[in-house]
Design a protein around this nucleic acid. Structure first.
Length: 327
DNA sequence: AGATACCGCGTGTTTACCTCA
DNA sequence: CATGAGGTAAACACGCGGTAT
């Protein structure tokens, strides 16, 4: 009998502790006389403990008691040692595995009664059944993890594709915006040049220092211009602050926007640094004049009394309203 | 209520066996 | 046919939590 590392004294004691080994009579009855549900067609597919290490291990049509009879050197006290020392590691038969698999499908946990019954039915030790279920659960978990990983990976790939498509679409739209901007800016310049030249023509004969030059209403005094500008902007500022590049009322526009705080105007200067924040450089030319305007939220409206002081207040004063809780 | 022993399970590892190049 | 590598399954070791005493 070749010694086995597997079933050394410590392991043997463990085996004896955990699962009492069946007597030879019980084993014989299990293997020979039992009405085995696996229906081995009368033959007993068992492990050939004798031939372990010398080739084929599983033999059929050999009653278990005949195998035991070969262990003539084993007395009762030595039976268990002989049983294990020769056993080494043996694979379960396909029938046993199939039966265990069916049992596992029904319930992957193993109650003590069921374990004993399965061991009886299969001619195995209860500990073997327990170990098989443990290993089977581990294999199942591994498979499940692989499956879950596959599912998650597929989901991730789908999301990534969506994201990439969105990025592409975003880039496309940005290009479109830039293209349109380049088309619009020259037009604005043309318009502004036209207007300024026209204005220069209109202003030339007018004495801006005097209100008395107005005749037939054809000449407009400066204060009236301011008023007109205010009125126009009061109507348009809410939705079109961007028109502030109108050549004749830059600074005045500031006043109008101060005087007419609107909720709409606030969003125009909203410091949105989201997707289009990177376009700020491109927008610099277009928005230079806008950036000089005070942000509408810079103005504190909490105290109505302050509104009257909003004209030309110092910038540093705004910080109080803008960062009310700053330390 | 805390201590102890026992048991089953999960997880990682070892070992034996099988397959295949 | 022999052999070594890699894969797989059986068995083990250890720790942990639950339960009974």
């Amino acid at each position: 009998m070749a010694g086995s590392k597997l079933f050394g004294p410590s392991n043997m004691s463990l085996l004896l502790q955990n699962d009492s080994l069946p007597s030879s009579e019980v084993l014989e009855s299990l293997w020979v006389h039992t009405s085995n549900p696996l229906s081995f067609q009368g033959s007993k597919t068992i492990v050939d403990f004798e031939n372990v290490g010398s080739g084929s291990r599983v033999v059929t049509d050999i009653p278990f008691f005949q195998q035991l009879e070969k262990e003539e050197n084993c007395g009762d006290e030595e039976y268990e040692a002989c049983f294990h020392q020769q056993g080494k590691k043996r694979r379960l038969s396909s029938e046993q595995v199939q039966f265990l698999e069916r049992s596992f499908e029904v319930e992957n946990k193993l109650e003590p009664d069921r374990k004993v019954q399965l061991a009886k039915d299969l001619g195995l030790q209860p500990r073997q059944v327990a170990i098989w279920f443990q290993n089977r659960r581990a294999r199942f978990k591994t498979k499940q993890l692989e499956k879950d990983y596959g599912t998650l990976k597929a989901s991730f790939d789908r999301l990534k594709d969506d994201y990439d498509n969105l990025v592409q679409e975003n880039d496309k739209l940005k290009d479109e915006v830039n293209f349109l901007k380049k088309k619009v800016i020259p037009l604005d310049k043309e318009n502004s040049e036209e207007k300024s030249s026209q204005e220069a023509i209109n202003k030339e004969p007018m004495d801006l220092t005097s209100n008395e030059n107005s005749e037939n209403g054809s000449k407009v005094s400066f204060p009236n211009m301011v008023l007109k500008c205010k009125q126009e902007d009061a109507n348009s500022a809410k939705s079109d602050v961007l028109d502030s590049d109108s050549p004749h009322c830059n600074d005045v526009n500031n006043l109008s926007s101060f005087m007419e705080p609107t909720t709409d105007s606030s969003h125009v200067f909203e410091p949105d640094h989201s997707d289009f924040s990177q376009d700020e450089e491109d927008n610099d030319n277009l928005n230079d004049n806008l950036l000089t305007l005070p942000k509408i939220e810079d103005v504190c409206y909490d105290d109505p009394r302050d509104n009257s002081c909003n004209f030309g207040f110092a910038v540093e004063d705004q910080t109080f309203c803008f960062w009310p809780y700053s330390i």
